[in-house]
Design a protein around this nucleic acid. Sequence first.
DNA 1: CGCGAACGTTGATCTGCATCAAGGAAATGC
DNA 2: GCATTTCCTTGATGCAGATCAACGTTCGCG
Lengths: 245, 245
Amino acid sequence: MSKPEITERRKPVASHGGHPCGACPVRNLSVCSALNDDELAVLEEIVSNRDIPAHQMIFQEGDDAGDLFNVLEGVVTLYKLMPDGRRQITGFLFNGDFMGLSVNGKFAYSAESVTPVTMCRFPRRRLDGLMERFPHLQRRMMGLASNELAAAQDQMLLLGRKSAKEKIASFLLTLSRRAAQREQPDDPVFLPMSRADIGDFLGLTTETVSRTFTHLKSSGVIRLLEGHRVHLADREALTDIAEGL
Amino acid sequence: MSKPEITERRKPVASHGGHPCGACPVRNLSVCSALNDDELAVLEEIVSNRDIPAHQMIFQEGDDAGDLFNVLEGVVTLYKLMPDGRRQITGFLFNGDFMGLSVNGKFAYSAESVTPVTMCRFPRRRLDGLMERFPHLQRRMMGLASNELAAAQDQMLLLGRKSAKEKIASFLLTLSRRAAQREQPDDPVFLPMSRADIGDFLGLTTETVSRTFTHLKSSGVIRLLEGHRVHLADREALTDIAEGL
DNA sequence: CGCGAACGTTGATCTGCATCAAGGAAATGC
DNA sequence: GCATTTCCTTGATGCAGATCAACGTTCGCG
């Protein structure tokens, strides 16, 4: 395959019992965790899957937000651009994470795959219908929105008031904690994104990100490993740094 | 009264028809706009009012988030603190604005009055009950959360990627637009908060805020008026500055 | 496997904003 | 209405991180 393409997989009609959503790898991480098996079967009626290669645009700021997405596998960035190309990444999404909250029916940010990604997709109108039927689904959505908002506020504190060192330390710890929540290894932290991406998330340049990693490494707090992984050698020191102590 | 105190006004039992919520100054700005008169009467059962003097703490990060609040009059800041005292203001609230979204039943930020404030207060548990009964109320809450999230993302772009001048220009325009939404004058923009507050919102120091105002003033883009007001003399120029053009 | 491009690191220099300092204006309290 | 405090502005100086530049390393692809 020379030209990467987005693959649409209309889910196979459930024929012999085993249905995708029930076997979903992120079933108890995401929205779906609010639903029991019967309800999940209803959800499955409106869901379709998508495979996306690395470094592909998923949607753009301002696009009609007809769909909501759930990341099953891989990493996604959400970001905003200024006319001159300055970029602010507002979040990295991992498996189980949800995206698509919109304002006036338009996406408020763009989304791009960092690695190859598998997602599932819900038409917004249909999902709204389900929320009317299943109030706990709506509760769950509200909870997710609240969490996102709290994360956004932490990020504002980071961007507005932390030094480069504090930013990198906070970033590593946040990734580690989120991995733990997904029941994935939280120590060698997986950093699939580029230095430029990290910079655009933390309000720094590539060079400063790189220098700061080097500095934390030579002070023995972290160790850079093969395959985009970072070992948090001294987690306590890292926590202190992150909080400015 | 030498020592300022928070006044709790248990609403008067509706006796002769005219009920506070129906006459609420922010009725069609806030959550309540989702409700018709009958539903509003139910809401009124669980609501109580509070008057708070200027520069008073309303709640603190980590407090049990038993209540939700709606600002009727005055200005409130939401903020986060670092152990060494660095502060990031995550938002300014005006009349009609809502606060109290929480994570794990705790407030994720502190709230403080900037001016004297009148608020109404809903016990969270009771409001949750109402949301089950009135799905459009839940929808409305979701909409408010989405808007807040979009605003938070704009603020991340501002904090991470904009210069001091761009930050101040964006700030003034945002305040102007929000005033218009509340059907208040959007041109002489009202800035009741201190330079220090503005700095802590924009990730700048007091001095830089002051210098940047002076600079915008001497380039004729704004005019500083009496009574914490700013006239946007050249709104187009301000817009261009805000977007980095 | 070997070539080219993208990515990462490191160094030298520059600059926007922070910090330090001090005087002026405007609230606040008696 | 005067004193005191707090806030705002302006100036001088310093520094964290940006920018500019160059080289090493990794990865995708033929």
